[in-house]
Design a protein around this nucleic acid. Structure first.
Lengths: 142, 142
DNA sequence: TCCAATTAGTTTCCTAGGTAACTATTGTAG
DNA sequence: CTACAATAGTTACCTAGGAAACTAATTGGA
């Protein structure tokens, strides 16, 4: 087996999944990158922008853009922290209220996309891919 | 297990892999999208631009850009086909000559990235991910 | 204490990919 | 034969992400 195939498959899967998320959230005027931020803020609570970056493994510049767009749409607020450099991002009331609808759309999409993959395989894939990713990123710190 | 985690892991893996390819090919002035095209042309032979799109599962506009940049660098040529709409893309002598060096760099990168993943798991991942992708894309045609 | 190094965030510019609208050519039905 | 549909590629504009250079604030060391 050529390794090219594996890399290509992963790349293609990634593109297809974000496309699906975008299609699902389009009726709400949201994009996949925005959803990722909203999801983290909802499940983990308010946090600084850099914490969001670390959690989502994304560099600072794209996060600035995503947060600013969410702020413009009125879904997040940026309150200055005790350290005057940091901006603590939190969901607004508007976002809290709309969230269940968004979540329901995403969850049903997930079910649809994964209904053909047995639970057992899902867990297996997740653990293998995650372990691989961890080793790849870990090796870079040496 | 939440499905978000699986999606996020795949997305992150995809980004990390293309980043690695970019770093590997930077000394040669090439980017991952260009490499994908060069690799296909080398292994499958000359083909039309739309055939490249289908093979790499990419839309036409990005392919136009990638091919044009490769042409500007002198690595591919575009000869009009019998059908005057199509452009048949082929590797130039310059690319044929440089290819082994590129390939060697990419192959050693692959080895480095996959050395911590046993062959058995590699095959397993590939087959599961590919099957999933196929079902996802197949379901869309109904 | 005060200056240097670090950190949070932003700006600018790059690659990668997608959608919509367009041109030019080829096929096809009437 | 002609008009209309389909196809190959391009152009313009969008999201997503990364690297480098920058500003402002904080921390640490001489």
């Amino acid at each position: 087996m050529t390794t090219h195939t594996l890399f290509h498959t992963i790349h293609q899967l990634s593109r297809e999944l974000t496309k699906q998320v975008n299609d699902t959230l389009q009726p709400f005027g949201l994009y996949s990158a925005q959803w990722a931020v909203l999801f983290v803020l909802k499940t983990k609570g308010s946090m600084s922008q850099s914490a969001l970056c670390e959690y989502l493994a994304v560099e600072a510049p794209p996060m600035t853009r995503t947060v600013q767009r969410l702020a413009k749409q009125g879904y997040v607020g940026q309150t200055p922290g005790e350290d005057k450099r940091v901006k603590v991002i939190h969901l607004t009331e508007k976002a809290q209220q709309a969230y269940p609808e968004w979540e329901q759309a995403v969850l049903s999409m997930n079910d649809r996309l994964l209904e053909c993959v047995p639970e057992e395989q899902r867990v297996f894939m997740q653990s293998m891919l995650n372990e691989w990713l961890g080793k790849m990123k870990g090796d870079l710190h040496e």
